[in-house]
């Protein structure tokens, strides 16, 4: 499937200090997981896992939006029972990646977008941006590993609150609530801090970094398998509720 004319929505970049970044920059689509966006993100993860193999990668989005999760068309399609999405593959690829993933969430991350952070190894958020597991506001249950991985990032009770209420928490609100987010900083400081962490990892022996990553990721891989067991079933059920399509149409935030 040659898609040479598709604009680049996700790119692999090197910053001026040589740190490898996956840059998600679909400004028009606000980094939601359209089919093309998801395909390009998966391609970038494959490229860095199989070919270039850096020991650490910074994931960054747009200043306003880190990543938005499933796109409306795909979600309505799921509710109509006639599409499948690649979204689930994104968390699997990230958890299985041989590199250390540093999620630099300068902008908002909601739904599947937040799951990119949950599937990463080190996570930075911005005080000004909002973070939410918004699945339930659209009438269906959380996915992409949310039911086991979100509690790893923010703690089980905050994760419960995020999933049940679907509230988009401001980064500033999460400060002092005992989450496991590594840093919650003013937006302008998020990317520089992420690059600084990446530089510290990059100077370690890459072979040793990859070994450690494989060991530390094992637990997360198991958690993701556990999540899939329950989330796939819940999705089959909740996307087939007759009311779900209408709820998505009303409450999806463009």
């Amino acid at each position: 499937m040659a898609k040479k004319t598709s604009p680049a929505l996700v790119s692999i970049e090197k910053d001026d200090r040589g740190v490898t970044c996956i840059s998600m920059h679909d400004a028009a689509g606000k980094n939601v997981f359209s089919e093309e966006f998801a395909a390009q993100l998966i391609a970038a993860l494959d490229e860095l896992s199989v070919r270039q193999t850096p020991s650490v990668v910074v994931l960054k989005g747009l200043p306003e939006v880190f990543a938005g999760g499933g796109d409306k068309k795909a979600l309505v399609g799921l509710a109509e029972g006639n599409v499948t999405t690649q979204d689930l593959v994104i968390s699997e690829k990230l958890v299985a990646a041989p590199f250390v993933a540093v999620a630099a969430m300068e902008g908002h991350a909601v739904g599947g977008g937040l799951m990119i952070a949950c599937a990463s190894d080190i996570v930075l958020a911005a005080e000004e941006s909002r973070y939410g597991a918004v699945f339930m506001s659209m009438g269906f249950t959380p996915g992409m590993g949310c039911t086991t991985l979100l509690s790893e990032l923010v703690g089980p009770f905050i994760a419960n609150e995020m999933m049940y209420t679907a509230k988009r928490f401001k980064g500033r609100e999460l400060v002092g609530r005992g989450t496991n987010v590594n840093y919650i900083l003013p937006r302008a400081r998020v990317l520089p801090k992420a690059v600084d962490i990446a530089l510290q990892i990059a100077e370690k022996n890459p072979k040793a970094v990859r070994l450690l990553k494989r060991a530390l990721a094992a637990r997360k891989k198991k958690l993701l398998i556990d999540a899939r067991l329950q989330e796939d079933l819940m999705h089959e059920l909740s996307f087939s509720f007759p009311e779900t399509k209408a709820i998505i149409k009303e409450f999806y935030v463009e």
């Binding site: 306003e64 909002r130 509230k167 988009r168 401001k170 935030v253």
Partner: peptide
Amino acid sequence: ANSLDIIE
């Protein structure tokens, strides 16, 4: 306020 702030 950004769009998500306004919604909240």
